[in-house]
Design a binder for these strands. Structure first.
Length: 607
DNA sequence: GCAAGGTC
């Protein structure tokens, strides 16, 4: 009997369906001589410190450097304390029984580093010795699954991928557990002061932005504006020059030949540019972009959006939510016209769905090479029964974005006018001539809502217009805004883009800080530790958060670069480089950071 | 009591 093991039940079901296996058992499906079972993500984790003899939180234990890591069943918190997760334990028993009976194992966990780790931890924990092959696919359509089974790879092809995954896992444990205990102990041990490769740079970003914002000294500057009049329609034009004093601005103002100063036609049109600009549709959503939209449009936290989305996924209404890809492959694209037709009677964008019927669809979101472990989020086409208003809102964001993504370009008419009256003054305006994809939600372009979405009257070069008004404008430079969940998620995604070292920047390019599946949890962790709090929509540090930041801000653990340097080494390990060398470096760094924190944490006592 | 990673 062959056993196929997937990362999660939904994938096992999809594969079983292709084989025509239908008999549902407790924890697996069987039929046609196969069994199809699954994990629930990581069932096993690196064992906690006490399993290596490091009892309690004690300076004498530090740094904790196990020579060989152990695995233990994933834990869950109950009122009686931390216990083995019963669901994980039960599923492991199912897998153990199936593996015992198996002649061959086919590994169908997600095609990536963590997917490999999820399987290997189970396999080694169960001390299984059966041969295994690897299914490597990135979409769960029938065609992709069939093709994948025709091209099963030898399990050993992925040994180095497992080594890199295992190194990632151990390194996070070593640095995180040791740094956390060191800082907590050094600060008097009154509370858990956690540190980690992802959470600490995230905290640092929030703190740095907060301090920058708080300490910002606005500068006042002056500009000059005029209002030319074309056949009774006035519009505003501004002189680009910025002045430090009002007096300097008034010099320019005095040169303006406005009507009140006795010039009936004091504005000369020097230049008129009117050109259409195509604005292509946005990409389909991945988890992060949807969390950002949920935060902007509805004020949901990243965690809330993920929970709502998980809910829709379990009701089979949307595809897999924790994806980091905004693309689909050609196989999925082939199903899109049918999917779109399912929305023709939707109350808000049914009309747009009808419009797309038979139309040529944009292929901007179609790129198999950019589909990683999972493709972008789509509705499945199943009809929702009852949805809560919040679920409906998220569902509509998914469905509406699908319509947008395959829609036509939005065509805007952009006009720029330069008026001479003493100085040169500029006016610009944007008018949507063909809405295309923007017709789906009919939202204003929020980035440029205030200034650009105005229409300008038709004027021609060398024309002279009266200037009805002129004024000096007093303005202030503005600080960068505090982070909110949307802007923080965006910043985590793009973290590392401005690293000087080209190799590190390259290593982080595809990942950023954390992963789509964990970013919401990272924000919640910082809140649970009382490092940050939500104030209206903003994320601001607490005094505890700021004190921790002060202690670690110049350490590597607070920099996104740490992830970059690890990613670079992990990629080399995947390519066959030595694991031992990297482990030694991590051990050395663990000793170093532990020592420094034990010294440096003291100031926290008094704060 | 602690990391980051995955998922019901």
């Amino acid at each position: 009997m062959k056993v196929i093991i997937a990362e999660k039940p939904s994938v096992a079901r999809d594969i079983a369906k292709v084989f025509g296996a239908t008999t549902k058992r407790e924890g697996y499906i069987e039929g046609k001589g196969y069994t199809f079972t699954w994990a629930f993500g990581h069932l096993l984790q690196l064992a906690p410190p006490q399993e290596y003899g490091f009892y309690g939180w004690n300076v004498q234990n530090l740094p904790m450097l196990p020579s060989k890591f152990k695995l233990s069943v994933r834990k869950t918190k109950t009122k009686d304390g931390v216990v083995d997760d019963p669901a994980a334990r039960k599923q492991l028993d199912v897998i153990r029984t199936l593996f015992d009976e198996a002649t061959e194992i086919i590994v169908a966990t997600d095609a990536g580093r963590e997917g490999e780790l999820i399987f290997r931890y189970i396999y080694y924990h169960l001390k299984c010795k059966k041969p295994f092959k690897r299914l490597w696919i990135s979409s769960q359509t029938d065609a992709a699954i069939k093709d994948g089974f025709r091209n099963l790879k030898p399990g050993t092809d992925y040994d180095t991928l497992f080594y890199s995954a295992h190194c990632r896992s151990q390194s996070d444990w070593l640095v995180g557990m040791n740094a956390t205990q060191a800082l907590s102990l050094a600060s008097g041990n009154r509370a858990v002061l956690s540190l980690g490769r992802v959470q600490t740079p995230t905290l640092a970003m929030i703190c740095a932005r907060y301090l920058e914002n708080k300490n910002f000294v606005p500068e006042i500057y002056y500009q000059v504006a005029i209002q030319p009049d074309k056949d009774g329609i006035t519009f505003r034009a501004i002189c680009d020059r910025r002045f430090k004093t009002k007096e300097e601005a008034e010099v320019v103002l005095s040169k303006v030949e406005d009507v009140a100063s006795g010039f009936p036609d004091g504005g000369l049109i020097l230049r008129v540019e009117a050109k259409p600009r195509k604005e292509p549709p946005p990409l389909l959503h991945d988890l992060s972009s949807l969390q950002q939209e949920g935060n902007k449009k509805k004020g949901f936290t990243a965690d809330q959006t993920l929970a709502l989305l998980q809910n829709l996924y379990e009701s089979k209404l949307v595809t897999y939510p924790r994806t980091g890809s905004r693309y689909i492959g050609d196989d999925v694209f082939a199903t899109v016209p049918d999917l779109i037709s399912k929305f023709e009677d939707h109350k808000d964008f049914g009309k747009q769905a009808q419009l797309l019927k038979g139309a040529k669809l944009s292929k901007k979101s179609v790129n198999a090479k950019k589909v990683t472990d999972h493709h972008a989020i789509l509705p499945t086409g199943e009809k929702p029964n009852y949805l809560t208003p919040d679920q409906q809102a998220i569902y509509d964001m998914v469905a509406g974005r699908m319509l947008e993504a395959f829609h036509q370009d939005c065509i805007k008419e952009i006009t720029r006018i330069v008026v001479q009256s003493g100085e040169k003054f500029n006016a610009s305006g944007t008018v949507i001539s063909t809405p295309g994809w923007r017709a789906v939600f009919n939202d204003a372009d929020e980035d440029k809502k205030d200034e650009e979405n105005v229409s300008l009257p038709k004027v021609v070069k060398d024309e002279r217009l009266p200037i009805r008004q002129k004024a000096v404008l007093e303005k202030q430079t503005k600080p960068k805004p505090l982070y909110n969940e949307a802007s923080l998620l965006k910043a985590l995604e793009t973290a590392g883009k401005d690293i000087d070292d080209e190799e590190l920047r390259e290593a982080m390019k595809e990942s950023g800080l954390g992963t789509p599946a964990t970013r919401a949890a990272i924000i919640e962790t910082l809140i649970k530790r009382a490092y940050i709090s939500r104030e209206k929509k903003n994320l601001v540090p607490t005094t505890t958060g700021l004190s921790v930041y002060e202690v670690v801000k110049s350490q590597r653990i607070a920099q996104a670069e740490l992830t970059g340097s690890w990613e670079k080494r992990l990629e080399e390990i995947r390519g066959g480089a030595s694991v031992t060398a990297f482990r030694e470096e991590i051990n050395a760094y663990t000793r170093e950071i532990t020592g420094e924190l034990l010294k440096a944490g003291i100031p926290l006592k008094t704060s």
